[in-house]
Design a protein around this nucleic acid. Sequence first.
DNA 1: ACTTAAATTAGTAATCATTACTAAAAGATG
DNA 2: CATCTTTTAGTAATGATTACTAATTTAAGT
Lengths: 123, 123
Amino acid sequence: MSKTKQKSLILDVVNKSYDHLNAYQIYDECKKIIPNISLGTVYRNLNLLVNNGNIKRIKIDGEMDKFDHFSKGTEHYHFHCIRCGKLYDLYGKVIVSSVPSKYEVLDYELVIRGICDECQKEE
Amino acid sequence: MSKTKQKSLILDVVNKSYDHLNAYQIYDECKKIIPNISLGTVYRNLNLLVNNGNIKRIKIDGEMDKFDHFSKGTEHYHFHCIRCGKLYDLYGKVIVSSVPSKYEVLDYELVIRGICDECQKEE
DNA sequence: ACTTAAATTAGTAATCATTACTAAAAGATG
DNA sequence: CATCTTTTAGTAATGATTACTAATTTAAGT
């Protein structure tokens, strides 16, 4: 895997963002630094970075895939408000009973769905 | 929401299947009973059934959305083998510390990623 | 049952996120 | 530097899903 300025920029944008950006938003951010970067390049590198474990992909119903920073030791998961669509980070341990030991666990993705505090107030 | 034979057939196909079928596979199954059922009808009803909480949608990297039966009390989650692509059902409790009480939790989706026993043997 | 209004369907066309392709440019290797 | 490999920009293609529409089916009230 060759190192290119496009690839490190894309990784940087994902790592430094506190939001959960989708491919197109990452593309927009990257254009501020490399104006003629190609959307295909963004997609291709995002896939590479996900496969190498550098970043994480988040899949949410009805929305474009989002990308999230990921560093061993600071695992986090997500709360998705089905009312306003906002995605909140949640830190803490996830304990799952009954994963048979014959399975080698590498990773997990957990999305909790519900209604956030702000949307509850509006009812 | 009107009751139609298409809608109940689609629900039936999802509920009675032990696999995790995607929209097209559900369409194929439905055609055995209603040969001229339309793919659009399958998609529209799957969305309705998901939104009503009758069935669940499973999102897996690089694969079409899958649909799964869902009944209160028999919650389950999934193990996805990144080698062979198989999706296994896992039953048991998921304990998540640190979901702030201000959030109203309705549902969750958990996918554990790793390598299944059969793929481990092949190494 | 009949009538009317509302919802749903089949079939097809359109959308849109993502991937594939290709010649040119940039990176790696020695 | 010289060569070989990888990556890129730009564009075209793909494919899952949704939108559209006239015809049919369902629901609700008499």
